[in-house]
Design a protein around this nucleic acid. Structure first.
Lengths: 137, 137
DNA sequence: ATCCGGGGTTGGACGGAGTCTAATCCGCAT
DNA sequence: ATGCGGATTAGACTCCGTCCAACCCCGGAT
């Protein structure tokens, strides 16, 4: 992702684009993986060596708040950030711990909005298992 | 839950019932809430003041391994233990952070077992929102 | 009754992830 | 040039969980 795209994304979500925030946004939005905060910090430091942990955490929190990215807490001890803000499900590979997106319409969920007493704002399916073929080591 | 029930549960899962393990099992199996490890530690200490953190963590890990309980990582920084090992979904109250069980058949999910390339061993729906009325506090 | 072995338990040290704070550093309008 | 407010920084701190070496306890063998 180019800097200008990142700048546009930040501005579209009313986040002032400082150099540090641009670096974080570029890292997060550019990645197809689900990165943890520390991975994002490490990559951002390649662009701005002096960028601090606090800034990265602050920026990520702001981005989550403004719905530019989403945070996921699916596996133990790892909060990861997902630049895909469209609805989708998650598949957790039990071998690698890696998280994969599943397209929303690959599954069908019925009844989520008609649970008595609950006002559901969002939902998704979390699946666990393993990838069938390819590279078992 | 009485001690004998806890003992039976441990033995049914081939876990040797020591006094400490009994205390942990009673706490976990007796609760309808989803307790964190430290909450379990605190309650177990009411019965056995000298019980150590390590023992509680060890016991919980064993219980998870032997499928006596399940561990859930649904909200930030909190691993909780769920004595309900039947399939069910989870609703996270965004106001309180509390986790509620949703009966398996309250929702219908289609397609989870027919995802190409993935061998799904388990899945469930995670919903977020708030409780409509009743007991705000 | 004593010894012995091994699983269970303990406390404390350790590590990683994330938060907080006070001081500093811009960038910008005047 | 100056002053202001938001942004950034480093580092201390907390919380959760893991690891490890020593200790304890108990049942079986002698």
């Amino acid at each position: 992702m180019k800097t200008e795209d990142a700048r546009a994304a930040l501005e579209a979500h009313r986040i002032q684009p400082s150099a540090q925030r641009l670096a974080v946004a570029e890292v997060v939005l550019d990645s197809t993986e689900h990165l943890s905060a520390d991975e994002i910090l490490a990559r951002a430091q390649r662009r701005i060596p002096a960028i601090s942990r606090a800034t990265v955490y602050n920026t990520l929190a702001t981005m989550v708040e403004r719905r530019l990215v989403r945070s996921l807490v699916l596996t133990e001890g790892r909060v990861v950030f997902d630049p895909n803000t469209e609805r989708h499900h998650h598949f957790i590979d039990e071998d690698t711990g890696r998280i994969h997106d599943i397209p929303w319409n690959a599954l069908e969920v019925r009844g989520a909005s008609s649970l008595p007493g609950l006002e559901v704002t969002e939902y998704g399916v979390v699946l666990r298992g393993r990838m069938k073929k390819r590279s078992r080591v």
